[in-house]
Each structure stands twice: as structure tokens, then as C-alpha cells.
Design a protein around this nucleic acid. Structure first.
Lengths: 170, 170
DNA sequence: CCAGTAACTATCATTTTGCAAGCGACATCA
DNA sequence: TGATGTCGCTTGCAAAATGATAGTTACTGG
């Protein structure tokens, strides 16, 4: 599956995967969220080969997740600063941290999230912004949005038939 | 970066990426969350080559995300059912759907999440379970957990120096 | 017997990854 | 005036992963 930067898929999840769905991209973003901005910082932190890092940073920059900013003119040097779009990816990283801690950290986590000003540990959960009720696989479903294509609507009708709504006689 | 199913990295985010961080795995999980269970369903839905699908399903099954369950003995047939660990991955998918909709669906989303019983649209946000305050890149930080290794602690101390806490004279 | 379905496996070309080395532009030191 | 170091890459190439196509096994139903 190549990364074409062409028309993105209709499904928002597939569009996200197409943009950041490579092994290293997530880890680069994880480090960027912590304040890393420079080529050499990412390289040392991740142990990634420089050509791979250059490719990933270019892809993420072309995707509008990083802004390539000149920080020194005399030796021309650039740093990679997260855009608003890039910073907004944080919930995905945090959800991954939460899942990783719940399922892999049997003896307690090695890393967790905390509030930057109070230092209090944070327990990330995904909720609906209006009701503040947790969103999970059993209570949520995918439905067609206003811009859904006929194929998307057909597909969603098909998957709705797979899992009838509970407490209804279907 | 190969997927070894050996000792997972200490960082929960890296452990998550190592487990599900391949292009197709996320999309397979997306479909599984919607009720897909069979090889042929995934294959038709994704347009994935059968050998690739077999490899991914094997990896996800070995990782404890799917359970391979016999649903017919006479022609021996198996289906892939999400485990508790697999279903718990839903917030990551939902966070990706939210990010994709916010940044790629300019004319309105093609797909969104809704409550299965009420049908009301859901707006996924990541919050702290105790305070119910949103978690974002500016207000959250990574800190060492009880099981952090000395290297992890050193690294986190280093990144903390990169981004001094706001409203403090550093 | 023939067609069809489900879940694969085998083969092999293409694509991606990643190691090692080198490069260009400058800064710093002797 | 070199000599060395830093930073941000690029190039070349081998190894690994991906993915298209075809084939297999084991049945069911007519």
C-alpha cells in the first residue's frame, strides 16, 4: 500500500491510516508531542535510519501535520513543528497509550499521562462531548454522514444488518 | 520494522504500534468492530489479497486481539471474533474517525459515530475519567510510571526539560 | 458429476525498508 | 590554514514486506 497523497478515501478512519498509518509516523508524532522538533532529536530518540526519517518527515509535512520552519539561516537549518492538525492528533496517541497500558503493563505502567500544571495522573477515556458517556464498541455504531456516497450508504446498511440493535426483536 | 511477537517495548504507545501498527490491521479492526467476523467478509470489504489477510489475522490472533472460533464442523470453518482486548481498541479507532472527520471532511463527514440505541450522533473527545477535562497536547505530559526503567526515567526527564511547565519562570 | 462456497496456501514480481556511507555548509578550535 | 565536529540530509544497495494471481482442500447442493 503506497502513500500517494492523492484523493483520500471516503472513510475517515482509512483517510487517517493513509496519512499517518506507517510504523514510524506514530512514533515520530509521539516524540513531537513531547517537544521534539529537530531531525537529529528524532533520529537519536527512535534509532531510525536517516533516509527513513527524511521520508516520513516529508510525508507528514506534505500532509500538513508538520510545518518545516527555518530556525537558523547561517547554516540553513530547519525544524519540524506540529501544526494545529498535528497537535490535534494527540487523542489518538493518548488512546494508544491507554490501550497499551491496560493490556501490556501487567505489573504497572512504565509511562503514563499527567496534567502538565498539577502533575496529577490522567486516565484517558473516550466520551461523547455532549453526554460525557463513554464510547465503546457495543454502544456505538457507524452511520452515514451528510456527504456519504451511495456506496457508503449501501455498505453501512449492510453492516447494520449484521448487528441488530439490542433490546429490539431482530 | 518487523513484527516479531517477542518482548514488547516499554513505551505503551510503541507496544501498541508493534501490535496493530500495520496498514491493514487498523482497517481489519475497524470492520471487526462493525460486526465482521469471516475471512471472506474482510476480503470483500477491504479488497485485500488473501495471503495478506491471512498473515494479518494470524498476527492479530497471536496477539490476543482475535479469537479463532470454529463455527461449522462439517466443512471445518472458522470465524475471527474480537476478544475483550480487541473490543477495547475501539477508542483508538473512534479517535481516528474523529480526527479524520475534523481534518479531511471539509464538506461534512461521510461517516460518523452514533449511539446504537438512540441513534443520536456522537462527538468523540478524549477526557480524563476523573475530572472529565479534555486531554490535549498542551495540557498533558508523559511521566514515569511505577515500572519505568532508569533509561525511561532519564528520557522523560530530558523531554521535560524541552518543554518547561507554563506559568513558571523557566 | 458439476458448480459453488469458504478459507486458505504457493509462487513470484514489485515495493518498501533500513543499513552504511558520504556530502555540503557551516562553526569552532589550534 | 587546516582539522575536526555538527546538523540535516542524500545515495546505493541488500533484505524484507507487500500484493497480484493462481491453486488447493473440503465440503454442500443440485
Amino acid at each position: 500500500m503506497q502513500f500517494k497523497l492523492g484523493p483520500l478515501p471516503e472513510c475517515p478512519c482509512a483517510a487517517t491510516v493513509e496519512t499517518v498509518g506507517e510504523w514510524w509516523s506514530i512514533l515520530i508524532l509521539r516524540d513531537a508531542m513531547q517537544g521534539f522538533t529537530r531531525f537529529e532529536q528524532f533520529q537519536r530518540s527512535l534509532g531510525i535510519a536517516p533516509n527513513m526519517l527524511a521520508r516520513r518527515l516529508k510525508h507528514l509535512t506534505d500532509s500538513g501535520i508538520f510545518e518545516r520552519r527555518l530556525y537558523s539561516t547561517r547554516p540553513a537549518r530547519h525544524e519540524y513543528v506540529l501544526t494545529e492538525k498535528g497537535r490535534d492528533f494527540f487523542p489518538v496517541i493518548a488512546a494508544m497509550v491507554g490501550w497499551g497500558n491496560r493490556h501490556f503493563a501487567k505489573d504497572g505502567p512504565a509511562l503514563l499521562l499527567a496534567d502538565r500544571s498539577s502533575g496529577r495522573a490522567l486516565d484517558p477515556v473516550l466520551v461523547d462531548s455532549a453526554s460525557l458517556q463513554p464510547i465503546d464498541a457495543d454502544t456505538a455504531m457507524a452511520v452515514a454522514g451528510p456527504q456519504a456516497s451511495p456506496q457508503m450508504r449501501e455498505r453501512l446498511a449492510m453492516v447494520a444488518a449484521l448487528r441488530p440493535i439490542p433490546s429490539s426483536n431482530g
